[in-house]
Design a protein around this nucleic acid. Structure first.
Lengths: 200, 200
DNA sequence: CGCCCAGTTGAAATCCGTCAAAGATGGTGG
DNA sequence: CCACCATCTTTGACGGATTTCAACTGGGCG
């Protein structure tokens, strides 16, 4: 869903893998619609603690966090070479914007549910299924895909250490639920994965 | 900060302690500005797992979660007898609304940082300091206040069990950092509390 | 070809959840 | 006014899931 937003793009911007689209503290100016590539957002507090709080792919909107304070509150980093549509704010997309904002909020509440009340294995299962669904919507294979992020990124996002992520992948592989080689994932038994994500 | 929103209130509504302001699944119709009292919001997934995701007091806005899907996604429950300003949607508060939405999003990212990367004691310290600050802004004492929510609510919000919350309160009390009797809190050594919340 | 970052795996420590029981509080009705 | 009950809170013991620390492996890129 490249959506109505893209029409409002005044220009495009390319970001190299590893580079920042914007950093926490930068003055807010634009929203960004991801056209291609992959991003992560993270928060940092003054003490150097940080956490990945979201992953964004084509069709997603970045920069909403800057509307409130006039400065971006998050840092958005490209995980591969990427292209975004730059949309100077404020354009006249109030209504659709509202929906996006609200959806984002709901998404985050759900993520909190994840972080606050599920075991590590469940969190990873939910994460994989969610990723799979989002890829499918965009026309990619939901069963075989490439993780754009490191184990550390996933761990940070899910509130666990990278070692735990690694161990869980290994365990799911032993159980024949998926195959993972590096960042290449193949979901073999999606039903069992769902069962892990949503224990009756 | 009762803010510009209150002017838009068409009516008021009273909600009894324990009663719902709105429930997940209800059709969306209005936003609610809290005028007095105290609310919690929670999410549930189909399997009965649930989690408190926020606490709201006078000046806060409730119901944003319903804009996206046309139905409320969260359940808002009064923790004491409360009054809200009912604001039928959509009024013309686009701009201020954007800021609120965005701020809400940022708030949640920060909460995820809390949930995902801090130990239980830190989380509780952050929670208390945050509450203290919000109360101060509203003209109440930042050092002595009344918790409106149960240990279970706090635990759910912070991703831990009610027993852990209770034990942590006891420990902080033993250390002379605060005094807690039931829901009455007195912060004695706020600097040490900060030190726990933000270890260098 | 070799370095370096990412990933894997193991062992030990620990934090926190679970289960269980007892103590406090506040509201209600007799 | 008091007794009783439901709800909330505290505390203890125990076990298990994750983190931590550490060593090792393997690709990818210069």
């Amino acid at each position: 869903m490249p959506s109505a937003f893209d029409k409002l793009a005044s220009t495009r911007r390319h970001v190299r893998s590893g580079g920042p689209l914007f950093s926490a503290g930068d003055p807010f100016g634009s929203l960004y619609g991801v056209q291609g590539g992959f991003f992560k957002t993270s928060v940092v507090d003054g003490e150097g603690r940080w956490q990945v709080t979201g992953f964004y792919m084509a069709g997603d909107l970045l920069g909403l966090d800057g509307i409130g304070a006039g400065r971006y509150q998050l840092t958005a980093t490209a995980l591969e070479d990427s292209v975004v549509a730059v949309m100077p704010y404020p354009p006249d997309l109030q209504c659709e914007l509202h929906r996006m904002l609200s959806r984002e909020i709901v998404r985050e509440h759900r993520l909190m549910l994840l972080l606050g009340s599920m075991h590590a294995e469940q969190r990873l299962a939910v994460f994989l299924l969610n990723l799979s669904r989002r890829l499918q919507r965009r026309g990619y294979s939901p069963l075989e895909f490439h993780l754009r992020m490191t184990r550390a990124d996933i761990g940070s996002y899910l509130g666990m250490t990278l070692e735990t992520v690694s161990r869980l992948f290994s365990r799911l592989q032993e159980q024949g639920i998926l195959e993972i080689r590096q960042r290449r994932v193949r979901l073999i038994d999606i039903d069992r994965l769902r069962a892990i994500a949503e224990p009756a």
